[in-house]
Design a protein around this nucleic acid. Structure first.
Lengths: 252, 252
DNA sequence: CGGGTTTTTGAACGCACTCAAGTGAAGTGG
DNA sequence: CCACTTCACTTGAGTGCGTTCAAAAACCCG
């Protein structure tokens, strides 16, 4: 394990070096935007950070739930074993994303979350958050929005059901692109932090299919690909593939 | 439309005939279980009911969000159009289920919800609920649990991705069965309120596949089927199919 | 450089889809 | 009461896509 400091409760809110008020992902995360006093208070709540090395586990399925986490920097994935026991990727997380929301119901984590690269997360004690929400209706509302957004996100993935492999892959690439855009990074060129196997587990395709589809996208001139470095050369075509408006399907 | 009474705000909480305290689905729904005073207050909040005929729309996608709804009796489905515009069923709702949670984020409904049969729903004004949650931390916690459970439910469906058609169908039948059991109905014998087409839209299969699979389940002696009336003759086999532990797959 | 992992590529199979026809029950109007 | 329509479901035949199995190539890290 890699705990830099002990998990403190609400009693000793020693401020951590980096505060939410100056965080780049602030607008996508939980801390209140407007009120300065509340912002300071939230810093005290979420001040503790935890560093993770690549492949290090943040929390494991069935582990008892006490903290929510927000990505400060880096990338993580969440996996859940299916009925057969095979792991299935339920989400990829990047800066500002909230993790652990699915643990509130049962009081234990429903998924295992792992760092895809060296990362840092902010710890948000759930008990403290509840208290803070009681005192601050705007914070409560932000939290409800975050939960609702997570439901929406999963509904969107859920609708992959009757999409072809090419459509699912296009959907993932465009999703990543738009999330990088939200964060001020290039929506055209980015690095795929996850392995082909992770992409397959996420989309319900095999690793071979992912590889073949990426190859066909490259051959069609829709993307440029160098290992995990990707550039979306023709977003329009990718979108058209999803919409099915395009007369031209993927050549291949 | 079919509004029996005007939508009142918090100012005129005229109690409706049936109260949450006596509702059969109370334990599965939002109202607090313990405190009698809070229970009465919640009755005032959620007292208004709305009746729906079969095929009547409760709310439509993009409609602005003001109310959450709970199923009092009857069954409903929620659908969302995919990128192509084809409707996709995201959930089937029965007594006690909360609807509209996905609308909190954007302030507009993300799906369209329709009655599968004559039904009645309880209206829960979101603004009033927020106020009530501010006054009652236990209610707030129940609400967070409900949101978290919805996330879990969708994750479970999301993992259908790499299941075969037979496995997906078994999963749906067992899910319905366990939900009826929770509500005190028979887990063995029940009525499928939705059409084969709805089941297909939900599971990502065609109507023909649903029909064939139900036929194979029947021929294998795992279920008895009379139109929409179904009896699970061998739950063990259905479960074994999902777990993949069973040596015997579905004969076919 | 070598050993292990990740990714790519090839060939054949099987499942769910599409297209097409047919059955059955419920509802309508003469 | 019976033709007719309509809708929901069933059944059959053929195809295509993603899978499985198998092997080679590229990459990473010691």
């Amino acid at each position: 394990m890699n705990e830099l400091m002990p998990h403190a409760g609400m009693l000793a809110p020693v401020p951590a070096p980096a505060s939410c008020t100056h965080c780049a992902a602030r607008s996508l995360c939980l801390p209140p935007a407007a009120d300065a006093r509340e912002a300071v208070r939230f810093d005290g709540l979420a001040g503790y950070k935890r560093r993770l090395e690549r492949d290090e586990v943040l929390f494991r399925k069935d582990q008892s739930f006490a903290m929510l986490y927000a990505v400060h920097f880096g990338h993580l994935k969440s996996t859940r074993p299916d009925h057969r026991g095979h792991p299935h990727v339920t989400a990829f997380h990047m800066a500002g994303d909230l993790m652990g929301l699915d643990a509130i119901y049962a009081g234990r984590h429903a998924c295992t979350t792992v760092a895809l690269e060296d990362s840092e997360v902010c710890e948000i004690p759930y008990a403290g958050l509840q208290q803070a929400m009681h005192d601050s209706p705007p914070l409560m509302e932000r939290f409800h929005c975050a939960l609702s957004r997570e439901i929406l996100r999963e509904q969107a993935v859920l609708m992959h059901a009757d999409l072809s492999g090419a459509e699912r892959l296009a959907s993932l690439l465009l999703d990543l692109s738009s999330r990088y855009a939200e964060r001020g990074y290039s929506e055209r060129r980015f690095r795929l932090r996850m392995s082909r196997a992770d992409m397959g587990d996420y989309l319900g395709l095999t690793i071979e299919s992912i590889s073949r589809l990426l190859g066909r996208f490259r051959d069609a001139g829709w993307i440029a690909l160098d290992k995990r470095e990707i550039e979306l050369l023709d977003q329009q075509r990718l979108r058209a593939l999803l919409a099915g408006t395009d007369g031209h399907a993927l050549p291949g």
